[in-house]
């Protein structure tokens, strides 16, 4: 097995162009597990940890760019303004894993249980890819995540990062697992309120083959808030019945299976409870905004 140690993104892209079968390694917290289990034996590995450009994040003209190599620990420490992303990052693994694991790796693995992914989905993020031959391109998260562990990346490309338009409004990420830390999600939910576009975005993880946006639920709550005047006046109460309907629609958007981590029935139930709670938290936060 060849191991390449590029010192920059440009070098990494050149190596990837020359050896498209080489597998990129960021934190290695997914890749090394695959190697240890003997499920993967790549002919070559490109270690991206020296490519400093990948480990950056910046905000420019209303957009946020999060480099593929930014670790969960860095997000928790450096991006406190992005609460759902911080909550998702804080829920990942253990301190060791958060210091190594990256959002780029989460995207690369494309597991439906990747905890950063529902947040990127709720933000309507784009995934930014680059190759030496064709330069940069981006695509919406749902086009990139094609299925369980399947992405739209080309063999000569690397993930450079994710980009989204900054959203004004409260939100949160929650993850159910059968242990209180370091657990793979049985169900994950990210809810974000977009005050400018008067929308509520809800994304679900671990309850289907890939990340799911609960579109019917989003439309129901967004229009219910419009008709009750809740968008203009945050103190307008949203009725219990509307919240129940919303939770029910979120639950029915899930497409869960039974497996060793949890039953389909519990996963769906979990989505319902998280939908209710996260909406209630966001609505009460709108009344006393801390996100401004």
């Amino acid at each position: 097995m060849d191991v390449f140690l590029p010192r920059s993104l440009e070098e990494a892209l050149a190596m990837k162009a020359e050896r498209p079968e080489a597998v990129p390694l960021a934190g290695g917290t997914d890749l090394m597990v695959e190697l240890n289990f003997g499920r993967l034996r790549p002919p070559a590995i490109i270690d991206l940890t020296r490519a400093a450009e990948l480990a950056t994040h910046r905000q420019e003209d209303g957009h946020v760019f999060l480099g593929a190599g930014v670790t969960y620990a860095a997000i928790v420490n450096e991006l406190p303004g992005f609460k759902p992303l911080v909550q998702a990052s804080r829920s990942v693994g253990s301190p060791q894993i958060r210091h190594r694991g990256t959002v780029g790796g989460n995207l690369g693995t494309a597991s439906p249980a990747g905890d950063a992914l529902p947040v990127l989905a709720a933000y309507d993020a784009e995934v930014v890819l680059r190759s030496q031959a064709r330069g940069e391109r981006s695509m919406p998260w749902h086009a990139f995540l094609m299925g369980p562990k399947k992405t739209a990346i080309a063999p000569d490309e690397l993930i450079v990062g994710a980009r989204w338009a900054r959203i004004r409004g409260p939100g949160s990420f929650s993850k159910i697992g059968t242990r209180n830390a370091m657990v793979i999600a049985v169900a994950g939910l990210c809810l974000v309120i977009d005050e400018d576009h008067r929308r509520v975005n809800v994304a679900l993880g671990s309850v289907g083959p890939t990340i799911i946006r609960a579109t019917p639920a989003e439309e129901q709550i967004s229009s219910a808030m419009a008709s009750s005047g809740a968008w203009q006046d945050p103190s307008t109460a949203v009725s219990e019945q509307v919240i129940d309907e919303f939770a029910e629609l979120v639950a029915s958007a899930a497409r869960p299976l039974d497996d060793v981590r949890g039953t389909a029935a519990y996963r769906r139930h979990g989505c319902r409870v998280l939908a209710r709670r996260s909406l209630a938290w966001a609505l009460s936060e709108r009344r006393l905004p801390t996100w401004l």
């Binding site: 909550q87 804080r90 993850k175 209180n180 830390a181 409870v273 709670r277």
Partner: peptide, 12 residues
């Protein structure tokens, strides 16, 4: 709280 690092509740 139950659920720990998963941030699933505020005491509900």
């Amino acid at each position: 709280l139950p659920g720990g690092a998963g941030n699933v509740g505020h005491g509900e």
